[in-house]
Structure formats: structure tokens, C-alpha cells
């Protein structure tokens, strides 16, 4: 019998878990990380076990993401960069570039055969991350989940601030100046993608490209990335689980 493995990717915003058997994903689970990453990871793990009716002792676990340090039931701890590379190659065989927009990090990873060649992460700054998008959405009175509804083809205004805090006050001024929420939403997406492109410029982007992370399903981001890279940008239904899948494969 082939080993059953679990990968837990405990990020700053969400904790993702994947259970894999014989190279097939049998179960996935995601929960907001909340204030106690250790407990959340445990809950995600239990749920994967229940979904598949598996006993804990049959399983090898690998943890990744910022919360990995506290996950004491993991047999292995691996950084999310290595995990994303292997998980992305699982989702899109032969992938060469991964663009991951996470809660507090955004990163661009150059890969070959699932192995990291080089990578760039954002510096100590929230610009270009999911948190920035979330803050901006709240400033306009919508939840992150409703934010995509504001995105309208061709509507955008430019945001000059690269800093999340300054951008926040810039949004206030733009709203006061009568810009519509749709225009500002377009501007925010453009700003996030521009920041990510600065990282991509240092690594170099080669096709195929896979978008991962919690914002991967946001069509507006994918389109803007295609526009700015000039290449097709792929998304998988399991994109946000890429790190967890990689961890499970390496457990």
C-alpha cells in the first residue's frame, strides 16, 4: 500500500490542508488561520482525517507556511517556496514560473521539474499582498469576497502609492474626489500586479506560468497579470492549495 500523506500550509491568512494517496488528492480543507495557528492546523488535520476516514498513525505529515514552526504533529517542516514549486508542478506539469500572492507575502519562483531555481519575495512591506487588497476592500466598504464584483472591464484609476498605508489614505482622497469604487478597485488590482511584476523582473518569467495563493481565483488579478507579463497565466482549481500539495508530496 502506498503511503498516505498530509500537507499543511499554515499561512498568515488561511490554513490549507491536503491529503494525498497514490498521487491523488483525496481531501482538501481550508480555514482562516485566526489567532492560534497551531490549533487551526490541528483542526484542519482532523477534518482531513474525518473526510477520508483515515487513522492518524497511517499518515506522514509535512508542514509549511509561517505557522509551520508551531505544528508539532508534523514529521517534517519545509519552507513554502520549496513546497510551492513541487505543488505547482503537480498542478501544471512542466510549470516554469509560479506567481504566488499570499496574505503577507507575494513571491515569484522560477522552477524546473518541480525544483526551485531562484525566487524573489516582497520586502518588509504589505504592498502587493493579499493583506493590502483586503485593507483596500474594507476601505471601500466591501469584504474581500465581494471585491471582485467591483472589478469592471476598462474601469481603473491609477494609484501612485506603493505603500499599503499611504495607498489607504490615497483611496480616501480618491473617494472624496468622486472616483467610483469600480475605478479604484481596478487601480488596486493594477497596483498589486505592478508590485508583483517588480519581483518577476528580477527572477525572469518563462511560460508556462501558474498563479497560486488565496487570490488565484480572482479573475481580475489573473487578467491583469496576463496583460502585464504578455503571457498566458494559468490557474488551477487547487491553486490555493499548491503549498499544501507540495508539502504532502514531500512528507
Amino acid at each position: 500500500m502506498k503511503q498516505i500523506t498530509v500537507g499543511i500550509d499554515c499561512g498568515s491568512a488561511a490554513c490549507k490542508g491536503v491529503l494525498i494517496k497514490e498521487d491523488s488528492i483525496l481531501a482538501v480543507c481550508v480555514k482562516p488561520t485566526g489567532w492560534n495557528p497551531k490549533e487551526t492546523a490541528r483542526t484542519v488535520f482532523q477534518e482531513l482525517l474525518e473526510q477520508t476516514e483515515t487513522a492518524e498513525h497511517e499518515i506522514r505529515v509535512a508542514a509549511t507556511g509561517y505557522g509551520r514552526v508551531g505544528i508539532d504533529f508534523a514529521h517534517k517542516k519545509i519552507t513554502e517556496i520549496t513546497c510551492h514549486a513541487s505543488g505547482a508542478d503537480y498542478l501544471l506539469k512542466g510549470v516554469r514560473t509560479i506567481i504566488d500572492i499570499g496574505g503577507q507575502d507575494s513571491k515569484v519562483i522560477s522552477v524546473e521539474n518541480g525544483k526551485v531555481l531562484s525566487f524573489q519575495m516582497n520586502d518588509k512591506c504589505a504592498a502587493g499582498t493579499g493583506r493590502f487588497l483586503e485593507m483596500s476592500a474594507h476601505r471601500m466598504g466591501v469584504d474581500l469576497s465581494d471585491f471582485p464584483k467591483l472589478l469592471t472591464e476598462g474601469k481603473r484609476c491609477s494609484l501612485s502609492s506603493m505603500c499599503a498605508v499611504f495607498a489607504d489614505s490615497e483611496i480616501v482622497s480618491l473617494l472624496a474626489a468622486g472616483k467610483t469604487r469600480e475605478e479604484i478597485a481596478g487601480g488596486i488590482i493594477q497596483s498589486v500586479v505592478t508590485k508583483v511584476m517588480a519581483l518577476a523582473g528580477r527572477v525572469g518569467t518563462e511560460s508556462p506560468i501558474l498563479l497560486t495563493g488565496g487570490l488565484a481565483q480572482m479573475e481580475g488579478i489573473r487578467k491583469e497579470l496576463e496583460f502585464q507579463t504578455g503571457c498566458p497565466v494559468n490557474v488551477s482549481q487547487f491553486s490555493r492549495y499548491a503549498g499544501a500539495i507540495g508539502a504532502a508530496l514531500k512528507a
Binding site: 509561517y66 519545509i78 513554502e80 525566487f119 518588509k124
Partner: peptide, 23 residues
């Protein structure tokens, strides 16, 4: 790796250094 004299970036540094060593 860019850093300063604070310790707030230990998490970020260890992810970057960890991934580098893993690769």
C-alpha cells in the same frame, strides 16, 4: 537578504534562507 538591526524580520529571513538552503 536586506535587513536592519531589529529582530522583527526573523520569520521572513528564515523563510528566505530556508528556501535557499533547500534549493
Amino acid at each position: 537578504l536586506e535587513t536592519d538591526y531589529g529582530t522583527a524580520d526573523i520569520g521572513q529571513l528564515s523563510t528566505r534562507a530556508g528556501a535557499f538552503v533547500e534549493m
